[in-house]
Amino acid sequence: MKKFLMIMACLLSFSIQASPDSKPFAEKRIVLQISDPDPFKQTLVLNVANNLINHYGQDKVDIEIVAFGPGLRLLFRENANVDRIDGLTNSGVQFSACENTIKGMTKQLGHAPQLNPSAVHVSAGVVRIIDLVGEGYQLIKP
């Protein structure tokens, strides 16, 4: 039973780790940055991701949305856009949450913010963007 659970946990962990190989037929690789406190930017970044998928096709574009700073609120568990985030996640979009921001917000709140389970934790949002750009992703900040 213990082994089974460990295997399941590993599989689950593997399944939510995005990598360039997760969409082997992707012709475009795009990282979207959300770091703005303006709530309208949340809608905008989700619209852009949706439009990219509609334009290129789900399998032809690899999209990662990196949230840090005030933009991390997009990935809060109670976020009003949760249905749209779920839909994009099902379309293969990865949502990355900055650990540094989480630590900062934890200090302000007195507890860690509860995040959307679809969110993948990355050590630093900016570093994640730099790494992805280094791997050939195009950075877009709506």
């Binding site: 709530p39 949340q42 809060f76 109670e78 976020n79 009003a80 949760v82 389970p117």
Partner: peptide, 30 residues
């Protein structure tokens, strides 16, 4: 818990109590 929240958070609609008394969670400005 998450699945429950995702359902309830979608219920804004033409609901004057909610439209006037609440803000979109984690998606409203200061």
């Amino acid at each position: 818990v998450m699945s429950g929240l995702s359902v309830s958070s979608a219920s804004q609609a033409a609901n004057w109590l909610m439209l006037q008394g609440t803000e979109p969670a984690a998606a409203a400005g200061r």
